[in-house]
């Protein structure tokens, strides 16, 4: 998607992006005690990313993000699994959570625990997957290859080709060329 030629839209989207994400982090950290949590926060962040892609265009978003959203999802899963396994190494049950509560001058009563870390894993998984799938879909609906060359190798077998065997490769070229630079 190219960016629309509207400065106002772009500026508003950039502002909203940060607001939504601040809200998402707020939702994530309060999840254990009040409405919120990793899944909801993840969806909120995914929506902010979609908005941003509408505002500034997919290509510039790619440039800004640098990280493949799929990697964010893998990181999230790894964190969640590690949080699950870690107590076993210390002789506790699988996925047992520990937390500390204390009073702090500014924030008031603070709860920090492994449950929050686990929830962060969920958050990252949801963000990564929603962003990845939507970006790929968005690109492919415009006749672009949803995935760049190296991703094609990563996510599908070597033998796999697009159904349109005669698909002009140039359509994918700009993407991969851009990546190399």
């Amino acid at each position: 998607m190219n960016a629309p030629n509207s400065f106002i839209f772009q500026a508003v989207v950039r502002l909203i992006f940060f607001l939504i994400n601040i809200f998402a982090v707020y939702l994530l950290q309060r999840g254990h005690n009040w409405p919120g949590g990793g899944f909801i926060a993840g969806l909120a962040t995914a929506i902010s990313l979609i908005l941003l892609s509408l505002g500034i265009g997919l290509k510039s978003l790619h440039r800004i993000m640098k990280i493949d959203p799929a990697r964010i999802a893998f990181t999230g899963l790894t964190i969640a699994v590690l949080i699950g396994v870690a107590p076993v190494l210390f002789g506790h049950a699988f996925l047992e959570h520990f937390s500390v509560h204390f009073q702090s001058p500014i924030l008031g009563e603070v709860h920090i625990g492994t449950a929050l870390l686990f929830d962060s894993g969920v958050y990252l998984v949801v963000v990564g997957i929603a962003a990845k799938i939507i970006f790929v879909l968005a690109k492919s609906t415009q006749g672009l290859g949803g995935l760049v060359r190296e991703e094609q190798r990563r996510y599908s077998s070597v033998r796999e080709r697009p159904i349109e065997e005669d698909a002009p490769d140039e359509q994918m070229e700009p993407e991969s060329r851009e990546r190399k630079q």
Partner: peptide, 14 residues
């Protein structure tokens, strides 16, 4: 048990 007052969330993560 789960040291959190949001039961929906404690069910999910704990």
């Amino acid at each position: 048990l789960a040291e959190g007052s949001n039961a929906v969330n404690t069910v999910l993560v704990d």
